[in-house]
Design a protein around this nucleic acid. Structure first.
Lengths: 196, 196
DNA sequence: TTAAAAATAGACCAGTCAGTCTAGTATAAG
DNA sequence: CTTATACTAGACTGACTGGTCTATTTTTAA
């Protein structure tokens, strides 16, 4: 029998604490105390803290991918409007966490990509998958004519992901979603525009 | 007499190690061993690791401000060309550090702004000063007519800083400056344009 | 020359870290 | 019922953490 409930509880608690305090600042003992799981169970499911961290990333990314698919592939909504909703959801999340957590993948990317190639690879794969969702949505926008086809969708997707992650960082240090709003405003006014 | 040489050596070594591995992952003992300073000296100059971290931020920001002033207020160069040079310098730095360090302030912003309000304030002040350099440069560009006056310079500066910091993050996880190049390309093609 | 202040030196401390180890319990298959 | 496996339980370990403490050396000022 596989009791995945305990494993999932560990990952869920880990995601929350790592999201709030980062990977290095989150001790295994803190995770265990928070969710009331003994250490023996932890090392039964994970061979090391690194493997645990990778599992947290993987689970987070799975959930997030599903949300991205639901928002950005919703064919009942015009493509650029889907993007607007994605940004709105991000701002809402930022407010809900009191501007502290931001984006787990972005946080870990900053903290760990210089520390461990294993983490860097895992995080980069997540980013690249996100970019593909943007690419799909932008291509749709180009097909409907909402968006000029002059700019390659891949380059735009990279631009949007970079800008959005940076805006989240600024929102964290400023404790305000204004940078996220400003990014969105200029993006839609100057970049995501139809052919002239 | 104030022997600032030892203090500066500590800060310099600290900036390097914290830039590479982050604040929490950099131990005081490692800093001391790296630059050959005994612990007694460290706590003679700094009352805690946090005060040390703040000193590292302050010194880094002073140096960086001087570089920004030199690049972005160089009146012998057209304003938008100054920005181009700033981006080029950033890319060069990113290559020199093998895509590991990136931006110290951005790194610490992600890692510490949820952990300590003191750090968050200090880092936010640095970011806001950087934005002011952009504002000045963009205003000059609007005066020369290189840049449309339709968009407020403050909003553009926030947009640029967010986007650039995000591009640095992506460059770190991707181990490539391509995201930085793509950000710059689209920025100059779509956003930093003259009046139509 | 001397006394105070600045700085160096590193042994040491309590607490925490990731990880190990042994023991016990629950569950399933034979 | 028996036995192997999955899982729980937490005491324990050695390394390392930020920080303290006392002693000594160097520098400055009187």
């Amino acid at each position: 029998m596989k009791n995945t409930a305990t494993r999932e509880k560990l990952i869920e608690t880990g995601a929350e604490l790592i999201g709030q305090h980062g990977y290095n600042a989150t001790g295994i003992n803190t995770v265990l105390k928070t969710c009331g799981v003994p250490k023996g169970s932890f090392y039964h499911y994970f061979s090391s803290k690194e493997e645990f961290g990778l599992a947290v990333i993987e689970q987070f990314s799975d959930i997030y991918d599903a949300q991205l698919a639901e928002l950005l592939e919703d064919t009942s909504t015009p493509p650029l409007e889907r993007l607007r909703r994605y940004f709105a959801a991000g701002r809402e999340h930022m407010c809900n966490c009191n501007h502290t957590t931001g984006c787990l993948i972005g946080n870990l990317g900053q903290e760990l990509s210089g520390q461990s190639d294993t983490f860097r690879d895992a995080l980069d794969r997540v980013f690249q998958r996100w970019e593909q969702y943007f690419v799909g949505c932008l291509r749709s926008a180009q097909e409907t004519g909402e968006l000029s086809a002059a700019l390659p969708a891949e380059a735009l997707a990279s631009f949007i992901l970079s800008g959005w992650e940076g805006a989240i960082l600024r929102a964290k240090t400023l404790k305000s979603v204004v940078p996220m709003e400003q990014f969105e405003a200029i993006l839609f006014q100057q970049v995501l525009v139809p052919s002239p």
